[in-house]
Each structure stands twice: as C-alpha cells, then as structure tokens.
Design a protein around this nucleic acid. Structure first.
Lengths: 358, 358
DNA sequence: CGACAGGATGATATCGATAACAATTTGAAG
DNA sequence: CTTCAAATTGTTATCGATATCATCCTGTCG
C-alpha cells in the first residue's frame, strides 16, 4: 500500500508528483473507478448521493483529474488551438479574448501561439499544436506554407481562417476584406475634399493584411484619378509607433504637399501624429493623418485619430462559434465565409475645419 | 482488423480524424513501433540510416506524433502553465514572450491563461491547468485563494510567482517591490522640487501590484513630510486610458493646486495627459504627470511620459529559467527570490523647465 | 578463434482515464 | 407475485505512445 503522506524526501522528479489516481479515490469511497469518472461529468448517470460522497473524497484527498489520460481514451483533447501574429497587439488579443469567451462552458480550452508574422514559424506552431490533437484550429490570415496546408488537411479537424478573406480558403473563414476597408477610408476622405494621398506601411509582404490594405489604397487612389499614391515603406511588420514617426518624416521630405496620410495601423498613425506635433506641425491643420484598427489609443489621444473600426472581439467569438458548430454537426467541410463588420470612424485627425475642439 | 482506408462518409467525428498511428508507420517501414518512437528523439540510439527511412515514411504518410499518448506513458506533459492578469496589456505580454523565448528548444510549450485580475478566476484556471499536468507553473503576484495554494502544494511542481515580492512565497519568486519602485519615483520627483503630490489608481484591491504602488506612494509622501497624498480612486482595475482622463478631472476639481500626479500605470497617465491637453492645460507647465511601466506609448507621445521602467521581458525569461533549473535539478523547494531591475525614466511630462522641446 | 562490449532493435507491460457492454437494483404496472 | 423498463454501478478492453528489459549483431582484442 502506498503511503498517503508526503514523502520525507523533498526532492522532486517530474513523474512522481501527484501520484493520486482515480482508482485510489474509488477505493477510498468504495466504488469503482468508472463511477468516479462519471461523477466528474454532469451528464453521466450517478446518483446524487454517490456523487456527493465522491466529491467529498476528492476534496479530502486533493485529487485533481488527469485530462491527459482521459483524452487518450476518449479521443478528445479538450482544447482548440489559435495562432495569432503577435500577442502584443491589442487587436489580436481582443480576438483571443473573443475566442476564450465563446469557449466558456464548452469544456474546451484555448491553446494560444504566436507566429511573429512568419509563415515558417506558423508552420512549426501548427505542427506543435497538431501533436496535441486539438479539436479545431483558428488561424490568422490565409497565407500558409504548403506543408502547413498538407498537415491541416490531413488532421481532419475544422480550420477557421480569420481577419481576411483568403483566395483559397482551407475550410471556414471569419473576416473582412482589408483592401475594401482601406478603399472605403480613401473614398470617404476623398469625399471630404482631400486630393493628395500618402500611405505608410511596412516594407515586406510578411503582413498579408498590411499588403492588402496597401493595394486597396493604391487601387482606389488611382480609380479616383488622384494620381499614384505617395507610398512610404518603413520597417519590418509589425511597424511600431516609432517607425510611424520616422516614416512620416521621409514622406514629407519627399512629398511636402501631401494633404492626408493613411497608415497601415493606428499605432504607426499615432507615432506619425506625435512626430508632427513635436516638429511644430498641427494635425489636421497642416496635415491630416488616419490609421486602421481603432485601437484604444485613437479615441483618447489628442487629436483623436480617424480610423477603421474592426470587430476584433467579434472575429474571435464568431470564429470560435463556427468551430463549435462544425464540431457539433460533425461537418468540417462547410466552406462558409462569415463576413465581419468594419466602419469608418471619423475623428479630429482628419477634420477639414482644423482642430475642432480647440 | 481495422480498415486502413478512409471511410466513404465525409462526416467527421471528433475521434476519427488522423487515424495514423506510430505502429502503422512502423509496419510501413518494416521496423517496430519502438524504433519509430526513438527516431523522433535526438538522444535515442537509432542508426542514422533507419532514422532517415523512418522520417521519409513519416513525411510520405503525413504522420504527426501524438504527444498526448506519449505524455501519459512518459509522465511528462511537455508544457508549463503561466497565468497573467490580462492578455491585453503589453507589460504582461512582454513577460509571456520572455517565457516563450526561454522555453525555445527545451521541448516545453507554454500554456497561457488570463485571470482578469481575479483570484477566483485564477483558482479556476489553476485547476484547469493542473488537470493537464504541467511540469511547472508561473503565476503573477502572490495573492491566491486558499484552495489554489492547496492545489499547488499538492501538485508537487515548481511554482514561480512573478512581478512582485509576496509575503508568503509558495516557492520561487522573480520580481521586484512595486512599493519601493513607486517610492523611488516619489523621492526622485520630490528631489526636483515637487511638493504637492497626487495619485491616481483603481478602486479595489484586486490589483495587488496597484495597491502596493499606492501604499508605496502614500508612505513616502508622508515620510517626506509632504502631508497626506491626494489620492483619487477611479474604476475597477485595470484602469483604462479613459478612466485616467476622468480621474485627473476629479483630482483637479478637489485639489486644484496639485503639482504632480503619479498614476498606477502609463496607460492612465497617458489618458490623464491627453485630457489635460484637451482642456487647454499644458503638461508639465501647468501640471506634471508620471506613469508606471514604461509602455511603448510613453516614449512616443507628446509630451513623453516620466515613468518607472520594469524589465517585463526579463521577468518572463528569468521565471522560465528558474523553472527549468528546478526541473533540471529536481529541486522544487529552493525558495529563492530573484530580484529584477527597475529604474526611473525621467521625461518631458515632469520636466521642471516646462516643455523642453518646444 | 573465442569472448565480450556496446550499438541497434524488438517484445511486453504500462501510464490513467473512458467506451462499451454487462450486471444489478429499484420501482411501477399488470 | 411477476415482469419489465429505467436507473445505477461494475468489468474489461482500449486509447497510442514509452519505459524497461531482452535480444541480436558487429567488431575488436587478447
């Protein structure tokens, strides 16, 4: 018989912690292990009285269920994986929170990874995740390596791509067109009379959403007959606040008469605005600046930043909801596309009447 | 005997995806399952030639290792758990990144959870995590429910508490004294001649680090003979940028002659500064404002914000390093305290000479 | 030439729960 | 008093990998 007390030896080997098993709880209560197992789930048929006795024993002994054993047997790992480009970006962490909230009371847990905007890192993470047999997986964007696609196809679990509308969706999609959203912003500002448009974004195509916004900008500026846009590329995505400040300096050196500058995100827009302020330029009097993403900062800072509001949290909730649907109906081949909303939020940083609150 | 082919039926049940097992790979190659298992690990003794054949087969068949089975057998789950108050706060996501980076090439994965600054939610998460048998756990702060403490003690895995110096450490600690750090900031500013100190923080004690900063402020202001501090409590932690703006309004209504205001975090300091700017007050000419945490925004915005720089990333790296040490030596009872650095960063928002860059 | 060390591989039991089915009990209806 | 359905509980096999020990093979050295 094992001794119930802590061993004298305080040394700890990875394996020997928490030796308590379900069978020992069962013996303690005087039932079978199967009954203990049932007591842990609400659906199972165990008499209230037995369950109470078991739960008291669990408490007394300090037993903690071992899901890794259970998931092997039930073939249900009990979690879903989500990969986001950066954990340090409140847009994506809002999405993560949406997923977590949608998973409440489903018995599913979120396993989060971040790819640093790299498809190679994404591939590695997908493999690492699949080794733990998630019941579904949520990805950001539609750009994946060939091997990643193969692994996902083989895994046979529902996949949801988010935050954009991929050309070749793997499975389900919850997102919006970044190009269209940026185009809408261009059209709105053009409608206010702006003519000379500049754009600030990162240097590479790693950030596919950034690239889509950029081409949405360029295409629309040309469609409206406003000549080729004045584009500055600066820094490796994700472009920081500081890089936004440096980029606007380059842009204004090259095209001093620019009237309005659109930025790939609010963060770079904020950096740009602060740099202008620091150099004695007034926004929007001397130059108008807009962002993308409607981060908290944009409604707080001075001047407040015109931007595209994206339903980040909703993307997370809906992605998780689609996944739960697929798991519930057992249908993983429904290649549905769920469009999420976005809207232009006009604020002080592009106001035609100069600083309105001053 | 099982049928090797995919079923005709495209419907997907949780269990029947990815039917491929190690044994099937083994049969395909003409070796035993054990040899395949060895091929997946670098230490094991398998001839290079056999390993190569196995890996080719793995590629060809699209086999993905199943860690949940392996961890049951080896009694090593292969991950460590970390709980942070909020995923949406760049200080904590820097810590998470530090942990992830330190875990590179250790074969350990990070399982992240967030507690929303609630000890009850933390307790739930700890239980959820322990059910997956993490090899170690990293917590934020030293405030836990009694049951959480019991579960952790019973689990017999190394625990690292971070971001503060708990009075009753469970095991290891990696952090700093939030009270001392705030005290240092008060003393520094008092040394510059400031006399009438205000403070902005959240309303409840949920955020223990916030409470420690608050009492560090109060104690130091009194020690310096600067009378009781002017304290405004506003909003439930984590206090937002917007609440920072509202709080400064209350504070100035009540104590219009306040010279300098310290905020529980840079985010509320930023909100306060923007609100002042919007109301036509100049920072620091009319009032000086400082924050805590040295968020990216504080070195970018105008005026730049005086703050305490905390080694968030280093906290994560060191916490993970301590955990790896403990796992390696097998000693979980080393109740060591690792102090991490912090420093005052003086910037424009508290400059005695008014706006220096203008 | 025999013996033995050491590398490579295989066979079997096992990790700790759950699925599937069997057995038992209880209670209501006939 | 039987009978049968429903509720409750137990038994056994199993999930897919790995620990452990056994076996086989090769080459070297006295």
């Amino acid at each position: 018989m094992k001794n119930e007390d802590e061993p004298k030896d305080k040394r700890l080997k990875p394996g020997d912690a928490q030796k308590l098993t379900m069978a020992e709880v069962a013996k303690y209560v005087g039932v079978s292990a199967m009954t203990v197992s049932r007591a842990f789930r609400q659906d199972a048929s165990v008499s209230e009285e037995t369950r109470k006795r078991i739960m008291e024993a669990v408490d007394a002994l300090g037993y903690v269920l071992d899901l890794s054993a259970g998931s092997l047997s039930s073939r249900r790992s009990g979690f879903i994986a989500a990969l986001v480009p950066s954990i340090n970006n409140s847009n994506f962490s809002d999405t993560a929170r949406g997923i977590t909230d949608a998973l409440q009371n489903t018995g599913l847990q979120l396993l989060l990874g971040y790819t640093d905007y790299s498809a190679e890192k994404e591939e590695e993470l997908i493999e690492a995740m699949l080794r733990r047999r998630p019941e579904g997986i949520i990805l950001t964007g539609g750009s994946h390596t060939a091997r990643a696609r193969r692994m996902l196809a083989k895994a046979g679990i529902p996949v949801v791509e988010t935050w954009e509308l991929p050309e070749n969706p793997i499975n389900q999609v919850v997102g919006f067109s970044n190009g269209e959203a940026m185009a809408l912003l261009v059209r709105t500002l053009a409608g206010q009379g702006y003519r000379k448009f500049g754009y600030i974004g990162g240097t590479t195509a790693r950030d596919t959403r950034g690239s889509q916004r950029r081409s949405g900008f360029q295409k629309t500026v040309e469609e409206l007959g406003l000549g080729p846009g004045r584009m500055i590329s600066f820094g490796v995505p994700p472009i920081t606040m500081e890089q936004g400040g440096q980029a606007i300096v380059s842009l204004l050196e090259r095209w001093p008469d620019t009237e309005v500058v659109l930025c790939v995100s609010d963060l770079s827009a904020f950096g740009a605005i602060m740099e202008c302020t620091r150099r004695g330029m007034k926004v929007p009097r001397d130059i108008a600046i807009a962002g993308f993403g409607d981060y908290e900062i944009s409604s707080i800072c001075h001047p407040r930043i015109t931007t595209i509001n994206v339903d980040c949290y909703g993307i997370g909730r809906q992605a998780a909801a689609r996944l739960l649907d697929a798991l519930h109906t057992g249908n993983s081949t429904g290649d549905e596309i769920t469009l999420t909303g976005y809207k232009v939020v006009l604020r002080e940083s592009t106001d035609r009447n100069g600083a309105p609150s001053a």
